[in-house]
C-alpha cells in the first residue's frame, strides 16, 4: 500500500534520513523504534508529506506523493495521523473536530459533482448539504460511542484529559475512513495513568485490521501489537523483523545496546 523507496530528508545541511526503503502492506502494524534524534519521527512525518522529502519516492496507492506536483490534500484524506500533542482544534467542540474535515471534503466533492453534472448527460446523484451533515454527524457519534465519549460530544478540547484528547484525535483521523493511520509517539505526552486507555483503543484498531505505522517507546505494546518492528538509527533502517525475533534475537549491535538500555 505504501512503498517507500530511498527516502531522504535533510534540514539544511543536516541529513536526517539517508535513504529508507520499506514496504507497508494492507493490515500491517509497523512499529518504528529508535533512539531520540534517529529520524523516526521525521520518517513518519514524511509518509504524509508533513515534512517534504528531499529525495526518494513514496508510492501510496500507486501515486508518488513525494512529488511536489501531486495534490497532497487528496491523498492526506486517506492517511490519518495522530500526534504526540493531540493537535485537536481548540476552537471546535469534540464533535465538530471529528466532523469538520469529512463534511468539508464531502461538500467540495459535491460542488465538483454538480459542475460535472452540468457538462455531462449522465447525471450522478448529488446529496443535499443537510444530508451530508446528518450522515457525518451520525458517523461521528458512532465513533465517539466506540471510545465511550458520547457525553463529551459538545465539550471543548480544553476541558478533556490528555487520554480523552488522544482518543478523540484517533477517531478524528478514523472519521476520514483512511487506508492507513500514522501515530507519532501517541502516548509520550500522557500521564502514565492514561497511557493504557489510548493503547487499548489502538489495540482494538489493530485487531480490526487497520494498517498502522506507529512510532513509540512502549516496547511491551510494540511486542504485543506490532506485526513488524523497525529499528531506525542515524537515518537508516538498521533492523527490521517480526516482534519475536526482533526482541529475543537482535542482530544489529546498536539495536542490542538500545534494547539493553530500554528493556530493564
Amino acid at each position: 500500500m505504501i512503498d517507500v523507496i530511498d527516502l531522504k530528508k535533510s534540514f539544511g545541511k543536516v541529513d536526517v534520513l539517508k535513504g529508507i526503503d520499506i514496504k507497508i502492506n494492507k493490515g500491517d502494524v509497523v512499529v518504528v523504534i529508535g533512539p531520540s534524534g534517529s529520524g523516526k519521527s521525521t520518517f513518519l512525518r514524511c509518509l504524509n508529506c508533513m515534512e517534504d522529502p528531499t529525495g526518494g519516492q513514496i508510492i501510496f496507492n500507486g501515486v508518488d506523493i513525494a512529488d511536489p506536483k501531486v495534490n497532497i490534500n487528496i491523498h492526506r484524506r486517506r492517511i490519518g495521523m495522530v500526534f504526540q500533542h493531540f493537535n485537536l482544534f481548540n476552537n471546535k467542540t469534540v464533535i465538530q473536530n471529528i466532523m469538520l474535515s469529512p463534511v468539508l471534503c464531502a461538500l467540495s466533492d459535491r460542488r465538483k459533482a454538480i459542475i460535472r453534472n452540468i457538462f455531462s448527460k449522465k447525471k450522478e446523484p448529488v446529496r443535499s448539504k443537510d444530508e451530508i451533515k446528518k450522515t457525518e454527524k451520525e458517523n461521528a457519534m458512532k465513533l465517539l460511542a466506540r471510545i465511550g465519549l458520547e457525553d463529551k460530544a459538545n465539550a471543548y478540547p480544553s476541558t478533556l484529559s490528555g487520554g480523552q484528547k488522544q482518543r478523540v484525535a484517533i477517531v478524528r483521523s478514523l472519521a476520514m475512513n483512511p487506508d492507513v493511520i500514522l501515530f507519532d509517539e501517541p502516548t509520550s505526552a500522557l500521564d502514565p495513568e492514561m497511557v493504557g486507555e489510548v493503547l487499548e483503543v489502538m489495540k482494538e484498531l489493530a485487531k480490526s485490521g487497520m494498517t498502522m505505522v506507529i512510532v513509540t517507546h512502549e516496547m511491551g505494546f510494540a511486542k504485543e501489537v506490532g506485526s513488524r518492528i523497525v529499528f531506525i538509527d542515524e537515518g537508516v533502517i538498521k533492523e527490521e523483523n517480526n516482534p519475536k525475533d526482533f526482541f529475543d534475537n537482535p542482530q544489529d549491535p546498536r539495536l542490542k545496546e538500545f534494547l539493553s538500555k530500554v528493556l530493564i
Partner: peptide
C-alpha cells in the same frame, strides 16, 4: 498540522 493532516488545504 492537525488541519493539514486530515486533508484540509
Amino acid at each position: 498540522e492537525g488541519g493539514r493532516s486530515v486533508g484540509l488545504s
